[in-house]
Computed example of a mutant assay.
Amino acid sequence: MSTATLTPAKPAKSTKAARSSSMRDSMTMLRRNITHMRRYPSMTISILVMPLLMLLLFVYVFGGALGAGIGGSGDRGDYINYLVPGIILMAATSGAVATAVSVCTDMTEGIVKRFRTMSISRGAILTGHVFGSVLQVGAVLFLITGVSLVIGFRPDASPIEWVAAMGLLLFLAFGMAWLSAAMGIGAKTVESASNAPLPLTFLPFLGSAVVPPDSMPTALRWFAEYQPFTPINETLRGLFLGTEIGNDGWIALAWCTALVLLGYFWSRAAFNRELRP
């Protein structure tokens, strides 16, 4: 009578081990995206150039005229202090286009299908893009802030207020990255992916970034006061310059949280749908 040899089943991965593996995969994807940024710096330069040009244009071309409408002494220095928080906010949103393009490139050029044949966590692919975008935006924020200080921006923020302001900006960049990743997944071409996030990147200008909403026509003023970027901008202005924040801080955090949740669940659902056989 023969005796069958039983091969013991391999133990299933524990939740902790699976989480650790997913983290390693995410770090690998993040390093991949950072390597792409270093080899092809044109996209990083492009997201730096737009807010930088806007900063110089509004300060040196329109600053003298617009400064008279914001109170204080009405000179260019007052306007620089008013404008810079809005430009920094725009810089935080500018990484959305680069994220959408890089995600769309991966989806349309077949690299994601090759990743599926490897033992890589699905979520790590998107996570690498998102955290790579946040790091890219962080570098742009550092440069824009440095230029602003050189041309006359004079904040009176304490170190804690600086940390709070930069934390809010990176939280916003995190939400914008997830949202633009979803747009990149849904886009059929790189061109359409680059156009999809553009309205979001320019939405700060229809708020309090450049001029006070009180100076706008009634309908536009109502939109400027209640759109997502105005409370974020006013919170930054309060942290940098000591102006009244009021409820804007909590509203800003609520909008950023909503962007993160919307972008995360939308991008994950779209990604899983695209990978469905």
Rank of each mutant, 00 (worst) to 15 (best):
D156M: 12
S21W: 00
S180R: 05
T44G: 14
T230M: 11
L259F: 15
F171S: 15
P213L: 07
F202C: 07
V163S: 12
I34L: 15
K16P: 00
C104D: 06
N81K: 06
N233Q: 12
S20T: 12
R31N: 06
S21Q: 13
W250N: 09
Y79H: 01
G123N: 10
T28W: 15
P228Q: 08
L135T: 08
P11D: 14
A124Q: 04
G63D: 08
I245E: 07
V163M: 15
Y226T: 13
F171P: 13
G63A: 07
I245P: 06
I88Y: 08
T127A: 15
L236P: 08
M118T: 04
A193C: 08
V260S: 05
L206Y: 11
G207D: 09
F223H: 04
N272L: 14
G146E: 02
M216E: 03
R122A: 10
N233C: 13
A181L: 09
S22T: 00
P155Y: 11
S73G: 13
F62E: 04
N195Y: 10
A100E: 07
A4M: 14
C104M: 01
V150Q: 01
M216W: 00
R273S: 14
S26D: 12
D214F: 13
P212V: 12
L83P: 01
T7K: 12
G123M: 07
E161C: 00
I47W: 01
T28D: 14
G167T: 04
Y40R: 09
W250Y: 11
K13F: 11
G249M: 14
N247T: 14
A252K: 05
L55P: 04
W178C: 10
L220C: 04
T7G: 13
K13C: 04
Q136N: 11
K10W: 03
L253D: 05
A258K: 03
I70M: 04
G184F: 08
R32N: 06
L179H: 02
M176H: 14
L275Y: 07
G86M: 03
D78V: 12
V103N: 12
Y226W: 14
S46Y: 01
M37Q: 13
I144T: 09
A254S: 15
L261S: 06
G74C: 11
R221V: 08
M166S: 02
K13Q: 13
F271I: 13
Y60M: 02
V211A: 07
A182E: 11
F229M: 14
M37F: 10
S208Y: 02
M183T: 01
T93K: 02
R76E: 11
S215C: 03
L30S: 00
R268Y: 13
P11R: 11
T35Y: 12
I70N: 04
A65T: 15
Q227W: 01
A209Q: 01
G64Y: 02
L135S: 05
S119Y: 00
G138D: 10
A270W: 06
A139P: 00
L169V: 10
D106W: 02
R276L: 15
R38F: 07
L55E: 00
G64P: 03
L141H: 11
G186L: 12
S215W: 11
A193Q: 12
V134S: 09
F240Q: 06
L253G: 07
S133Q: 13
P159H: 09
F153A: 12
A65P: 02
P228Y: 05
F202R: 01
L6S: 09
L89W: 04
S102R: 08
I88Q: 04
L66C: 14
R24E: 08
F142W: 02
G167R: 06
L83R: 06
Q136L: 13
A209Y: 02
P199R: 08
